[in-house]
Design a protein around this nucleic acid. Structure first.
Lengths: 210, 210
DNA sequence: TGACAAAAACTAATGATGTTAGTTATATTA
DNA sequence: TAATATAACTAACATCATTAGTTTTTGTCA
């Protein structure tokens, strides 16, 4: 029946992602994955080191997709519009791929550079989008953290069924983003402008891992 | 050595919580728990139905503690001060008890009334604290959702080590709360006052599971 | 005080899973 | 076509959750 299934790491991650989305990341097992792929579970070790490694690879796979979606959403937009588009992309990804989102946001083991790198790219994207608001130094970092907290908090609670009432969740999300945007604008208006000087294109654009 | 260890459900949950805090909820096993308690793992079934039930009980245990902390923090305070106190209590609990917090926030299986009840109590607490801001109907629900998103998003990201920079996290958290408070105040000032009428003590105080 | 009943611990066994070691079969390529 | 790399396999083991049945302890009541 299957003396060579023709699998590779990508097909395995693909199927693993589908299973995680369908049944939850916690229910993703090598045994179940192997069955879905039509092979024996020990054969998976030809492509992936083991279950922890599979979950790590899945996290990278997922975070990359999430970043891509945010990046595309931000293309050609600026300011409030860009933030809303990124936010929409974020929650849509979490809704469509609950298992992948869960994998992406699980605590990364120390020394997983790949995940760190993508995380930093996401932070840089948010930092760039916030730049027109004229935030300086620490203010920018605080703002990016706030944005990330709101995105993850909402997506995570929604995924867990934490919001019980039928009231429109998209409306909640839009308002929440508007609140954060208003707060950011306010703080950039009369806060002390500590560090930035208008045309330092090089240094103030360095990646910040908020 | 131990023909009667003198255990009960509470002592078991206590130890389970300590293990979860120390090694992560995912690494909490019946085998490890039994070893820590000095009994055989099958003996745990005299007190708890099995691993899923243990995790559920732990979630209830944890959410109850979290609620208590929030409640005590809110006592004797109002408005901004109350919100900051509740927020502080929330993140402190997540920091001190990462395993318990994780357990409390895991997706509840359908039909787990106990968890739902405590969740509703938390929502009611937040609703009450937001009441002085004069939010009406849907506005109040959106506001509570925003607050919960911020609390959980921040606590969760911090727990996962999602914030890389050394910049003071407490400062970030304070600012974030101020932003949300400002947004809530703003929306209550000129938003359409749809439903509430000043002295309907009964109906507008009913529990809302936001 | 002493027997009985409830329950808390135990032993033993089973099935699922992750993992490793060693084997076979297939595809690629020299 | 022969040789090599590799993708799959079988077999085996450790760990874990779980169930069934047994022993032991504790508390209660005659």
């Amino acid at each position: 029946m299957s003396p060579r299934a023709g699998l590779d790491r990508n097909k395995i991650l693909q199927m693993a992602g589908e299973l995680a989305d369908a049944h939850g990341l916690d229910n993703l097992t090598l045994a179940g994955l192997a069955k879905a792929l039509g092979i024996r579970s020990s054969s998976i070790y030809n492509h992936v080191e083991g279950l922890p490694e599979l979950r790590h690879q899945l996290a990278v796979h997922a975070l990359r997709q999430l970043y891509d979606r945010m990046l595309h959403a931000a293309a050609g937009r600026a300011r409030d519009e860009a933030i809303h588009a990124i936010g929409r992309a974020y929650v849509e990804f979490a809704r469509e791929h609950p298992g992948l989102y869960e994998a992406a946001l699980r605590a990364p083991a120390p020394g997983q550079e790949e995940l760190t790198r993508i995380s930093e790219a996401i932070v840089k994207l948010l930092t760039d989008v916030l730049e027109p608001y004229g935030l300086a130094g620490d203010d920018a970092i605080h703002a990016v953290r706030a944005l990330r907290s709101v995105l993850h908090g909402f997506a995570s609670l929604e995924q867990k069924g934490g919001f019980g009432l039928p009231l429109d969740l998209d409306e909640t999300f839009r308002r929440m983003l508007d609140i954060v945007i208003a707060g950011i604008s306010r703080s950039s208006e009369h806060g002390p402008d500590q560090t930035s000087d208008g045309h330092d294109e090089g240094s103030h654009r360095r990646i910040r891992f908020s």
